[in-house]
Design a protein around this nucleic acid. Sequence first.
RNA 1: GGCCCCAUCGUCUAGGCCGGUCCAGGACACCGGGUUUUCAACCCGGCGACAGGGGUUCAAAUCCCCUUGGGGCUACCA
Length: 577
Amino acid sequence: MVDSTSSPRVVTRFAPSPTGYLHIGGARTALFNWLLAKKTGGKFILRIEDTDLKRNTPTATQQVIDDLRWLGITWDEGPEVDGPNGPYFQSQRRDIYDKYIRKLLDMGRAYYCFETGEELEKLRKQAEAQKKGFVYQRPAVFPTKAEAEKAKAEGKSVTIRFAMPEGTIVIDDIVRGEVSFNTAELGDFIIIKSDGFPTYNFACVIDDHLMGITHVIRGQEHLMNTPGQQALWEALGFDNPPKYAHMSVTISESGGKLSKRERPQTLRKEINTRIANLFGGPKLGQTGSSGLSKETWLESLAKYGKISVDELNNFLSGEISLDVPAAEAIAKNLGVELPEINVVDFFKSGYIPEAMVNFLALLGWSPGDGREIVPLDELIQSFDITRLTKSNSLFDRGKLVACNTEHIKMLFNSSDRYKLIEHFNKYLLAIHSPIPHDLNVVKQHNLLLRLIIICEGARTLADIEHKCRFLFIPDDKIEYDEKAVQKVLLKDNGLAMLKLVREKLAAMPELTEQGIEDMLRALAEEHKVGLGKVAQPLRVAITGSTISPPIFDSVQLLGKEKTLVRIDNTLKKFAGK
RNA sequence: GGCCCCAUCGUCUAGGCCGGUCCAGGACACCGGGUUUUCAACCCGGCGACAGGGGUUCAAAUCCCCUUGGGGCUACCA
């Protein structure tokens, strides 16, 4: 437990590298750091670690910012929020790093290296062949500055390494206790790359020191970086090392660490399976059962993804990965569900941020008193860094769904009900739903509220959308579910009953839920059947499926005219079948 | 391969640091039943775990060691 009265103010940070959308694991890391700051009345800084030019993408920072804000994780300092510790982009802090590099060089705690990446790779391979761990051999004499400048002028690769001290380094970790490392097995690591940018392990130490970070909560994948960083901390004479807490990692349902690669991997697997099923093998030019040749099929897929057939083939053989929009476009056209990995994926699947945050917090942490559905303010209240779990946890989507169901219910019943409407509206906008969405229009605001009400018990916003979209598509665009037609319309005189319902409905001057209910119940009574026998054919007629909000609301919302048109269409379409 | 971490129901976890109150509690999932105009929601009931082996001790899920299993790292990525 962090004592906020006697210790200096807590400062935590989240330091993503801008390589794309915010990953769900990153969101969890951000959340825990944020919770600690909030709980202790401390400060939370957002810092962008953009020191890898090759991996940065121009839109990533904005994406990460949007995702954090959607989750409700706000920062006291960082991009768009100025403060005393800026700049918050590492690429803008290079003069700062230079200063410390010179210091290390002067002290003889860092030295120039001239090996190229390929040469190092070769050494690594050799070590592997001998079944040994690769450790960089420190030269007996460090190259001079003049030599480095000469090498650079000649276009050679010049990097700078930190000279690790000899001996054992002990990390006192909040979640793992004392962990010790033998520095001889770690070796000297690169702190300045040949492009002049600092590496993560270096920039991170300087910035954490300068920004006064007191606690670093991060994934276990960083545990092996810690001795190096701690050694750097000491070498530079910084006297304010942060406390580290290395959390358990989130494991995906398919095994390893939850990774962005899972989405394209799922797509690859799915396409390859389909190729095997459709064309019987990976041979080209065969003709599948659909009469389509494999080549044309692949061509059409490539077109969906706006990529070349060659690219697609290379992707399928595992040689290259696919960028997100391409993978998503192809998956969509194929009807393949890609696993949600990024925060935005969950948004688009209809999860609400309140549920995401709750679920994430319970992955590797628990309040300890058995509470499972915990609103954000209570999460902050109960947060205790010492209760972080040691063992890895599996990302269970089923539990997320349950959590989402509860939070939708809870938000709906709270005084913040408008938030739920806002979430729903934002969701509709994002997925281009035919359901009208513009909260500035009072009528639409009320409509969305009504839809939420009649879908009580919905698990996700997507559930509500699926159930209600039939109301807003053209009457002639209803897609009939084959099973529903068979079971409800063509059996047990479903169509005959539908005809009777049509007559009664047509005779009603005005459609109210109560009126519709009375009418349907009377009809069921009259024919000595359950309400289902009357309601289901009607449901299939107006929605095309057996799933919809309560039938009385559904009809009332659709309106008399459209209901009658859809019944007539249905009657006509399936007459005599 | 090397280094490091972890190990309670299918899953997330409580308990473990301070050994007896734990023949291990909750939640999700699953199964059975109920409610019901569909789906969902809801109600009731059930199944279900201390990885294995050695110690220490009057006593071990709890402490120690080994084995096994899982995970992480092993980059001029973060």
